[in-house]
């Protein structure tokens, strides 16, 4: 039951993204439906002529697009889909965690509520199994950062799995006739407000976002290195017991290694969060590519399976990013 709903939810944005399919089908009923939403007809017929292309769907679902244009000092600071999604995730995180924390802090000796216990177990997991395991008793100052990394990435990964609610709402409203939208569906700046408020994109599936997070990790590694080893950190990057002639070479290699770590972090998160979506879109895209009912069960079942895998990956990648960050910080706290 739940699976079928999930599959339906997954299928909806693809359907909504492809007015092409509807208008290119020869059935009269489909045309009548399109005709009913009179405002949409010109926009749709503009795209209706070309055939279904999976790359268009992928671009629509995975590519960032500006929703509100903003330019500061000549720098493009547009509020894009991912920015909105990030804000939605941050808001959800703050609205969930702050009251829970207040409730827990009020009665620390009382058994917390079910949600409180869940949050507490996650916090304890990050503190004990991630921070403390890789840093020992030096972990204390880094715990809030690691916790924020974990929850921020986790919520963005999970929200990315929810289809664009705004788009579904708008589509349902237009189909039922109680919402009208003037303008071009394919110009992201002119999308209706509901669509803009929940663009349903994976914020962590973008190199800009993951690179920024990895950059924060890199800065933290540097700060931790200098804080625990002082200025000697520059020399201690190289492990002890190396012949002095090899030292310059090793130093360059180790510095490169230091830079590779956050790079790998960024690429790993990006690739993992993109790959699953890509597979789901491709599987559902088969339906429209082959224009056949026979492929439907296979597509839906496959995408549901991948979706469940993605749920796991969402947690796993949040864990791995946080864990590796903790590990890297732990590795610069002492000379090796």
């Amino acid at each position: 039951m739940k699976k079928s709903i999930a599959a339906l939810l997954l299928a909806l944005p693809v359907l909504s993204a492809e007015p092409v399919v509807e208008s290119s089908q020869p059935e009269v009923a489909a045309h009548e439906q399109v005709e009913q939403a009179t405002a949409d007809v010109p926009a749709e017929t503009g795209h209706g002529s070309d055939e279904f292309k999976i790359s268009d769907v992928i671009v629509h679902h995975l590519a960032d697009a500006p929703l509100w244009h903003l330019e500061v000092n000549g720098l493009d600071m547009s509020i894009t889909k991912r920015v909105v999604m990030m804000w939605v995730g941050s808001l959800i995180l703050i609205l969930l965690l702050v009251p829970t924390a207040r409730k827990i802090a009020k009665n620390p000796y009382q058994a917390p509520s079910r949600f409180g216990a869940f949050i507490e177990s996650l916090v304890s997991f990050v503190r004990n199994n991630i921070a403390h395991d890789s840093m020992g008793h030096h972990s204390h100052p880094y715990e809030p950062l690691l916790l924020t990394f974990f929850f921020f990435i986790l919520i963005l990964n999970l929200l990315g799995l929810i289809p664009p609610l705004g788009e579904i709402y708008q589509m349902a409203g237009e189909a039922l006739g109680w919402l009208h939208h003037e303008g071009d569906h394919h110009d992201s700046l002119q999308l209706p407000l509901a669509v803009k408020l929940w663009p349903g994109i994976t914020a962590t599936g973008d190199i800009s976002v993951t690179a920024t997070l990895a950059g924060i990790t890199f800065l933290t590694i540097l700060i931790a290195g200098f804080a625990h080893q002082g200025i000697l950190f520059i020399r201690n990057v190289v492990p002890g017991g190396i012949h002095w002639l090899l030292f310059p070479l090793m130093w360059v290699i180790e510095i490169a290694g230091l830079l590779t770590k956050p790079f790998a972090l960024a690429i790993r998160l990006l690739a993992n969060m993109t790959a699953g979506h890509l597979i789901i879109l491709a599987l559902l895209g088969f339906i429209f590519q082959f224009q056949s009912w026979g492929i439907v069960p296979l597509s839906i079942m496959g995408s549901v399976a991948i979706f469940l895998l993605e749920l796991f990956v969402a947690f796993l990648q949040a864990y791995i990013f946080t864990f590796l960050t903790a590990l890297f910080i732990g590795s610069v706290q002492h000379r090796h």
Binding site: V83, M86, D206
Partner: peptide, 9 residues
């Protein structure tokens, strides 16, 4: 990399 997105992130 989109610099605006980097700053917003």
């Amino acid at each position: 990399v989109n610099p605006g997105l980097v700053i917003w992130t």
